[in-house]
Design a protein around this nucleic acid. Structure first.
Lengths: 209, 209
DNA sequence: GTTTGTGAAACGATTCACAGCT
DNA sequence: AGCTGTGAATCGTTTCACAAAC
């Protein structure tokens, strides 16, 4: 695989979509697929598909298209899905609870190995095979059993403090559900899912109909 | 307010962020703010802030900056937040449950007025002041008590069917948590929050360090 | 002197279109 | 003949830079 910097985020998101569609095609027994067919399934254009893939190599055969199986493997490799990631969930509230049960995590190799909360009523309780730990134990626990990814599901006020702590522990990727813009060093990547923002985009669209 | 078509989604998202920051500033008693200060809070540039606002009018005073209070009102108006939206939640699983309790909804004028599920074990149960209704009653209920926004939290397989039904009932905005690309008519706006996609973007970033 | 509002320039992403391979 | 891979053209967004307003 080519090692290129600065692939657009939109490209990476599309690759992720292509992978899902290809997995569908694979289940249906399709052996090859054209950029045109893949584009049709994903609501984009064949040129876009070919350009996206071309950043990473040339995986197709002219006149024929792409081998579904090969392209699945290539995309998994590009997206780094050939391995398991260890994940710590920080916050055992409603959303944290929902996420722990979400099959999509484990199915795709994201393994939640610990959950933390400050609420003593929750600490010690079993949760989908895990025990909620006191947030005070964060450093001890993550040193004993390190993770690559932290999911932050705390109230907004607590989010930056917790972020600083997991960054100090060497975590390089954060999925943030707190409605806050987190500040992190350059070598740490943050993805924020901000519900309020999505709702307001809908509100704008409805208003300016 | 000017009525212009084709404002970029990225612009709308930033406006939403600016509004949050301005509300903070307002609480702290600030009366005016420069594009520079607003940009610093939000991790963007002053030129970007001014350009974003300029699509909708000119709200500042040269040499002085923007009145915090006035800009808050303007942005609420632009984003369509001066009113209440009625929301139906479709799916009473873990994520639906978490969302119903999420304060951010009601706080910002998004009022969940009904919840539906197919699971008879859930139907009839009280839930944060609401009663879960059978999805069979969707048409009856939404005709009696219409909504502007539907939040779809069903399994992927059910999502498109439910979408078609709410669209037929006149819903023009959908917030989708099912890991599926929904197909809707042009006059319906969909925002999809796809956890798997966010995780895979993190995985890509970690891999291509 | 300060800070806005905005054309123009720079940059980045998407689409076009076609040469080259199968 | 069919479909990829990719430079070139187009389109959209961000940044620059400065005249105008206070």
């Amino acid at each position: 695989m080519l090692r290129m910097r600065k692939i657009a985020e939109s490209t990476v998101r599309r690759l992720s979509l292509y992978l899902r569609f290809l997995e569908e095609f694979e289940e249906q027994g399709m052996e090859t697929v054209s950029s045109e067919a893949l584009a049709a399934r994903g609501g984009t254009t064949s040129a876009q598909v070919r350009k996206d893939l071309s950043f990473f190599g040339s995986f197709g055969k002219r006149g024929l298209g792409y081998s579904v199986g090969e392209l699945v493997l290539k995309l998994r490799d590009i997206l780094g899905l050939g391995r398991t990631y260890r994940v710590a969930m920080i916050g055992a509230g409603k959303i944290g609870s929902a996420l722990v049960q979400y099959r999509g995590f484990r199915n795709r190799g994201f393994d939640i190995v610990s959950i933390f909360d400050t609420d003593q009523a929750k600490v010690g309780k079993g949760w989908n095979g895990l025990v909620v730990k006191d947030l005070k134990e964060l450093e001890t626990e993550l040193r004993r059993s390190p993770v690559e990814i932290a999911v932050i599901v705390t109230p907004g006020e607590a989010a930056q403090g917790v972020t600083d702590r997991v960054v100090a522990l060497g975590v390089k990727a954060i999925l943030n559900f707190a409605p806050i813009q987190l500040t992190v060093p350059d070598d740490v990547v943050v993805k924020t899912v901000n519900l309020a923002l999505e709702l307001e985009t809908l509100s704008y669209a409805l208003t300016n109909r």
